[in-house]
């Protein structure tokens, strides 16, 4: 069957269309905040928070919660606030705190799943959650509505408070001096990041979430220089790579999450070479 015909055939399935809608929204949101996180030297926080979400998922599955988002989202938000808003004044500093939370939550989550899980296929459950092999293709309409709602909220906050986010990204103290409530906006950024990480786990799995946050921003920074152009370019790169990754995965039968990340890596090297050629 020719590729276009095969793609048209696959597009008839609702779960493929759901995957594309959710994939585009998640990659758009994660790339927008990715620029801020990379510039604030918090690139690795996505990894830490996704492992926290994995731990919360393990607890939710033990208690057999019908909607595990009710536990995962608040827990991840609380940890994001603790890491981003109190990092500078604590005894355990930024990167060490992220590393500690990251491996701690991963280990405890896996331990709890092994001890208490009633599932017959624990390794399969863990593998799916960590690498998101097909989870994006198993979404229900209600999951998609939740994702659309949360994504619109994230985009609204980013668009409406763009200037304030820009100010605290580059110089928090200066922003504070000019009357920006830096603490409030840091809190807002922490909440948004937690929401994005929880959503992105469905797309690429817990271990690969950082790629969605970091790669588009770093690719855009190779070629573009202003905050606005980097943000727009990062969003475009992220959406194109996710879309291409999902389509390649369903056509070639490869794991969705790692295919998307592979696309992001290809884009990064493309932009890196472009920047190298331009600088000569």
């Amino acid at each position: 069957m020719p590729i276009i015909e095969k793609l048209a055939f696959y597009m008839e399935f609702p779960f493929v269309r759901y995957a594309i809608i959710v994939g585009v929204l998640i990659s758009l949101c994660s790339s927008l905040l990715g620029v801020t996180l990379v510039l604030k030297r918090y690139s690795y926080i996505g990894d830490g928070l996704s492992h926290v979400a994995f731990g919360a998922l393990a607890v939710a599955s033990i208690f057999k919660l019908t909607n595990n988002m009710l536990l995962i989202l608040p827990v991840t938000i609380v940890v994001a606030i603790l890491l981003l808003c109190t990092g500078k004044d604590t005894r355990i500093k930024g990167d060490a705190a992220v590393a500690m939370v990251s491996v701690g939550a991963l280990a405890i989550g896996y331990l709890l799943m092994n001890i208490f899980s009633s599932s017959a296929n624990i390794s399969g459950d863990v593998c799916t959650t960590l690498f998101g092999s097909t989870s994006i293709l198993t979404l229900k309409a209600s999951d998609v509505y939740l994702c659309v709602g949360l994504s619109v909220a994230v985009l609204a906050v980013f668009v409406l408070f763009y200037n304030k986010i820009f100010a605290i990204t580059f110089d928090e103290k200066f922003a504070q001096a000019t009357g920006v409530n830096a603490a409030l906006f840091n809190l807002l950024i922490a909440i948004i990041i937690a929401v994005i990480i929880v959503l992105a786990m469905n797309l690429v799995g817990a271990l690969l979430v950082s790629a969605l946050v970091v790669f588009p921003a770093l690719s855009a920074m190779r070629v573009f220089k202003s905050f606005f152009t980097v943000t727009v370019a990062a969003a475009t790169i992220s959406v194109v790579c996710s879309l291409a990754g999902i389509l390649v995965a369903i056509l070639a039968g490869t794991p969705v999450g790692s295919t998307i990340v592979a696309m992001d890596i290809v884009a990064f090297f493309g932009f890196y070479i472009t920047s190298f050629i331009r600088s000569r």
Partner: peptide, 8 residues
């Protein structure tokens, strides 16, 4: 493809 079969 394998991914589509699994999802279906």
């Amino acid at each position: 493809s394998g991914t589509m079969v699994y999802a279906q």
